[in-house]
Amino acid sequence: MPLATYQTSVPVVVDDAKCIADKGCTVCVDVCPLDVLRISDMTGKAYMAYDECWYCMPCEADCPTGAVTVNIPYLLR
């Protein structure tokens, strides 16, 4: 059976203008318990790669520049 991609609106948003991943920061990617954040090869900024979020907040709390915003996943909002 072929696989299809499933659309989902991800709860965690990163402000590219504030993110300093391109300067070597990996804090949010490091701390996430569900390991769902990554640094994009294209933009050099952090982003949510997998919609598997516990909306626990370490990514937002520990980001040195305040670039991360955690939202409640739509399904339970």
Binding site: C32, P33, C56, M57, P58
Partner: peptide, 11 residues
């Protein structure tokens, strides 16, 4: 995960 922020007491 990462010991810094893992587990039930993550936050």
């Amino acid at each position: 995960a990462n010991v810094k922020r893992s587990g039930a007491i993550s936050m």
